[in-house]
């Protein structure tokens, strides 16, 4: 248990730092790389929680595909690649106050609601159980999500192509 908590602590600290990096760095490419750290940390947390399938999907889909997409987006829009002071707008301080307020509300709510709840992981959840759930119980949402992806793909192509 202690090992797990230590692992959590290290991962969480890295994720917090990286998340702040995503929203504070002055280099767009660095922001994308910080995002990789956050997502990889998230995947590690999933493994810590014994949910390995979703962890690997996170690595494959997010880090493998989405981040690459982001880098393409950065290149195609000629985003400033060098340190640049203009990445924040003038709403920085109101936004910070609002975000802190939201974090405070969420945090105090959670502490109030779950302050003694423990997670007891007996064994990791097998991928077979996940696939069973996806293809039996949640088959219709699964299909719908497939159609949604297709629609998004077509939509993205239509939006982005030059006529």
């Amino acid at each position: 248990m202690i090992a797990q908590n230590v692992a959590f602590g290290i991962l969480a600290a890295a994720m917090v730092v990286a998340a702040l990096g995503v929203v504070r760095t002055n280099n767009v490419v660095h922001a994308a790389l910080y995002l990789v750290v956050v997502l990889a940390g998230g995947a590690a947390q999933f493994i810590l929680l014994g949910q390995e399938f979703v962890a690997w999907v996170q690595v494959l889909v997010y880090i493998g595909a989405v981040i690459v997409l982001f880098l393409f987006g950065i290149m195609l829009t000629r985003a400033p690649m060098h340190p640049d002071e203009s990445l924040d707008n003038d709403l920085k301080w109101p936004a910070a106050v609002t975000a802190l307020f939201l974090a405070g509300v969420l945090g105090s709510l959670l502490i109030d609601a779950f302050h003694r709840t423990k997670i007891d992981i007996r064994q990791p959840i097998r991928t077979a159980a996940v696939t069973n759930a996806v293809f039996r119980t949640y088959i219709i949402p699964f299909e719908v999500v497939g159609v949604l992806l297709l629609a998004a793909l077509v939509g993205a192509v239509v939006l982005a192509r030059k006529d």
């Binding site: 709403l91 936004a95 975000a99």
Partner: peptide, 11 residues
């Protein structure tokens, strides 16, 4: 909350 901040404060 960090993400919310980023959505609001980034140009």
């Amino acid at each position: 909350a960090t993400g919310v901040y980023g959505v609001m404060a980034r140009r």
